[in-house]
Design a binder for these strands. Sequence first.
DNA 1: ATCGATTGGGTAATCGATTACCCGGTTTTC
DNA 2: GAAAACCGGGTAATCGATTACCCAATCGAT
Lengths: 338, 338
Amino acid sequence: MGVTIHDVARAAGVSVASASRALSGRRRVTPEIAERVARAVAELGYQPNAVAKALRDQTTGTIGMVVPGIGNPFFTTIVEAVERELQNSGTDLLLCASQYSPQVEARRLETLLARRVDGLIISPCDIEASVPAVLDAARRVPLVQVDRYIEGGGADWVGVDDEAGVTLAAEHVIAGGARSVSFAGSRPVSSSARLRLSGFERAAARAGVEVLPPLLGEFTLEWGVEAGRRLLDAGRLPDAVVCANDEIAVGLVRSLRLGGVRVPEDVAVVGFDDVGHATMCDPPLSTVRQPVEEMAAEAVRLLGQVKAGDPRPAQRIAIAPRLVVRQTSRPVTASVAE
Amino acid sequence: MGVTIHDVARAAGVSVASASRALSGRRRVTPEIAERVARAVAELGYQPNAVAKALRDQTTGTIGMVVPGIGNPFFTTIVEAVERELQNSGTDLLLCASQYSPQVEARRLETLLARRVDGLIISPCDIEASVPAVLDAARRVPLVQVDRYIEGGGADWVGVDDEAGVTLAAEHVIAGGARSVSFAGSRPVSSSARLRLSGFERAAARAGVEVLPPLLGEFTLEWGVEAGRRLLDAGRLPDAVVCANDEIAVGLVRSLRLGGVRVPEDVAVVGFDDVGHATMCDPPLSTVRQPVEEMAAEAVRLLGQVKAGDPRPAQRIAIAPRLVVRQTSRPVTASVAE
DNA sequence: ATCGATTGGGTAATCGATTACCCGGTTTTC
DNA sequence: GAAAACCGGGTAATCGATTACCCAATCGAT
């Protein structure tokens, strides 16, 4: 370890300035020098030190991304989309998981900022507890939120229109004949959890159907399984259940079927996200599709525009979701089928 | 942005040396100075620049991790385990995905090295094509491979004993009465893919049962579904299928059931990994458990020991897997049941 | 009282790459 | 033919934190 540009310059018999210029091409050098430098680089196996470059340039060519957990297929999908989006822009991604803990999240942000990332993409794990850390970060560096956001609107956000999504789902099952409906979701610690719940309740109330008490736990398959069991134990089944994500929906369907309930004949189930196993589970899941690629592209674009802590009012870019009807709900006329 | 230790020193009325000492505690300062520096830090909101520190110290407090893809639950599980393992050691993790492409992998390694990570944990995507990039990286920085490895043994490795794992699986289904068996796995571009296939074939041959041609595609649910279809189309079903991972197994079970085949009565299926949905799918999957936490701990420990490019012979640490019998295979006497 | 040891503070070198600035030589322009 | 513009090369400053080295003051021991 430790071939520096000085070594290259010496080996090529030129100054460091010339070596640097030959390498970066930001000023012309004679072909002769370019040649000698190229040879020296190859010979010595020189690899530029990005740390030194970052210090001098005051820019690292790196953006940080913090998501609640990489066990959740929705987040891995969006991470992959962001990576793809960044691919050809030369910047690369520093990925961290907050493990659904605002404390861990704050620490991760801290170290990303210390490493002087040029920007941050974050899905804050808690709508309230994440506020100080996120605002603080946004003051120092361009930051955009994705999917989840903090309350108060202090930072830019790109995501899906959660309320519209669950409304789509609720209206779909109601149009399919559901007279009583329920919601299986997450405890409302995140914006998505809250909006999907409230959007569902509003849509159901508007349609005038009976609303059974919601089942609130976590965004996991395990909780879906558990929610399904509780539904069975409660004795009375709703005609349809709208779920806050696909994992919950898949778990719920599993429990219901194990309990002898037919899906969608007895109970219709609709998920949210349309990532991971939604197409491949049994039966294929009706769900609300998040336009993940679009969100990632938008987030990256927005990140390029925002300057750290500028006074411009925070933007919220909500992308319209789309209902995908598969086989856990009865198809009705005007919806996209696959 | 831009409060430096010089600003702190000025505000506190001391030299940068004293400020640095007060902050790091690596030399004593008077309580008076410590106090003044602490106040200045709080007032100015000073945050040390990790880039500058890294340049001066020649160490970044960061290790890089490269896995083929974060869509695969096995890799996300091991990433999480490594993160946990690193948590209290103060070093943090730079995660990259090679997207199963040796070219992308080489680029990622390149940038991680340029950023001067203190070590690398990698699961090389291709047993042959990954060789030059991995060896090159190992020459510059401590490196340990996890799960997958490159041929030729030029770098340390921690993983599960793949052959022992599939042997466990094969012997289990044979003990359960299978007279004909098949294997559903990935094309042999990675060490795990190769070893699991060859281990299976050896175990089956040893037991003297009939071996149907293997189904080789990718480590995905989609491929599992496809493999199941091909099995159905082939007309002749084996008594048991051993799969190279859980995703394939789950997809295979789904296809078989859709085709009216009962699992495990008509065909027994065993997976590999025991991560993700293995416990929660229907029916719960019999599989070979990888000791992920142990592997992560071992990898981190080993990384602490190896020096870059030292001539010490490469170690291979294979951890014994464990068979977990659930409901896609017939239970036999002496195996762990859950 | 004096000398060596110890303590704590400050100055400036260091890490590696980039680039502002300077300088001598060549070309262009009127 | 002189002035202006241009070109390509080198020296040294710069980014921010750490620390080797130096120095003055204090302490303890004889």
